[in-house]
Computed example of a mutant assay.
Amino acid sequence: MQNSKGYLLTVCTCIFFLSGCWDQVAIEDRGFVVGTAIDLADQQESDFYNVKMTYQFVVPAGLGAPGESGGPKAFTNISATGKSLFEIIRYVDTQTSRAGYFEHLKVIVVSEEVMKEPELFASVMDDFIRDQEMRRSMKVIVSENDAKNILAVEPDAQKLPAIYIDSILQNNYKSARVIMPVRIGQVHEYLLTDRSYVLPRITTTEDGKRIKENGVAVIHGYNNQMVGTLTGKETKGLNFITHNNDGGTVEFEIDNHLMIYEIQNTKSSIKIEVNDNNKVDISIKIGAEGRIGEMYGSEKLLTPKRFAEIEKGISKKMEKLANQTLKKAQKDLNADIFGFAELLKQRHYDDWQKMKDDWDHGDNIFADCNIKVTANAIVRSVGATDKTKDKGSE
């Protein structure tokens, strides 16, 4: 009798482990979505915003073998309009043979038109943040024009536009004119803290085949509304202050000759104090190490005097770029995109409690902060040669 019970228990246990996944879906039945674009619909029919969502689905037959040409496209873009992202994706599922599957979604492109509407960006991000199928590593970017056009680019070297865009963003560390990719996990943090922030801004080339960086979009944390942009040069100043990007170059002049400083490492330290008059004083020290990447002229570099002049020239240029960005953020954009508020909260909590409702809105205390920037650039190498031409050897 006991043997029979043991046998029955063993059989039941085996059945439990052999039951499989109840919600399993065959891979050939999945519609892999790799990119999403969000625009405002042409017509707004109610008090709620109508948005146009464009989804980029992978067409496996178009991927082909490596080196193979011809055949169908490797992707198809499907657009739909509605007031709710849930409503839209359910409708899109009725237009395809495979239901949308988002675990491989790489990029979310949002048009400036959407970004400029108060709170709309936060609303459309809500579904991407809540849905457990969405990954926190998805990159969020802003399109200068219609976002759907970004997903329609067709570069020669990549069959899937969304994958191409994702790869371009990964190379941003090579240029100080752009910021590192912003993932939706970071966007979620910004939305929770009401902190002003920036997102990469892109546009298409004239032929519509590729994308190019176009500075950054500045979003005010108070209402998650885009309030302006920073150019490539202004983005450099932002990166120097926030230590967002270690790469890039600095162009400067020595004796009317152009010289290029290639940045290999940067660091910054920020000191923030509240004086007796409740004014905020901020001191920023920027450090950089790098090498001379290119120069025009024929003078030797390997002299102490020349080295000092070069390092001073680089430092002054970095200070100038940082100050230009600070001025624009304080006077034009009224947005603290440097994280000063977080430092003030950490180091002067009692003072922060008095200022938090008027930091970069209301009375706008941020605009009246006294900010001083000093930079110290060090040249570690001049490359394979110390001059372009030795006149004495001619």
Rank of each mutant, 00 (worst) to 15 (best):
V25C: 04
V382T: 15
S269R: 13
N277M: 04
I254G: 00
Q346V: 11
E206G: 07
K331M: 08
V227C: 04
Q158V: 14
A367F: 10
N376S: 11
I292Q: 04
E119S: 10
A217C: 08
V110F: 11
E144T: 14
I163K: 08
L105M: 09
K271C: 09
E87S: 06
S283P: 06
I219M: 08
E45A: 09
L40D: 00
I219F: 05
E262R: 11
Y164A: 03
D276Y: 04
I314W: 01
G287Y: 07
C14I: 14
E103V: 09
T13Q: 11
Q158G: 12
F102T: 01
Q158S: 13
A26W: 09
L258M: 15
A384Q: 14
K212G: 00
K372Q: 09
E319M: 03
V218K: 03
A37Q: 02
L230S: 00
I165E: 10
I286G: 03
T235I: 00
I260P: 05
G31F: 07
D93Q: 05
Y261C: 02
K327S: 09
K320F: 06
I141W: 08
I378L: 09
K320I: 07
V178Y: 05
V187P: 01
L230D: 03
D386S: 15
I89C: 12
E113G: 06
A288W: 01
D255W: 12
E133S: 11
D131K: 08
C21T: 06
L230N: 07
G383C: 05
V382W: 02
D166S: 04
P181M: 05
E309S: 14
A74C: 14
V11A: 12
E394K: 13
V58H: 02
I184S: 02
S167E: 12
T193C: 03
V274A: 12
R306N: 07
V187A: 13
F57P: 09
E299R: 03
E394N: 13
L321N: 01
A61F: 04
H220S: 11
I270Q: 03
V218D: 04
Y296L: 14
D358N: 02
T94M: 14
L18Q: 09
T229M: 10
E273L: 15
G339Q: 15
K312D: 11
G293M: 05
M259E: 06
I378W: 01
Q56F: 08
Y296F: 08
G31L: 12
L151E: 05
Q225V: 03
I129H: 02
H188I: 06
D351K: 14
D146K: 13
Q324W: 13
I168G: 01
V114S: 04
F32G: 09
I284D: 01
Q225L: 02
F57H: 07
I184N: 01
G215T: 02
R98C: 09
V187K: 00
E299C: 13
G297F: 15
V58L: 12
T249K: 14
R30S: 09
G247Y: 15
G293Y: 00
N245R: 03
L18F: 10
V59K: 10
C21K: 07
Q56M: 04
I27R: 07
V124L: 01
S393D: 10
L63W: 05
N149W: 10
L301R: 01
L120H: 00
D146Y: 10
K159T: 06
E309Y: 15
S69Q: 11
A367T: 15
A157D: 12
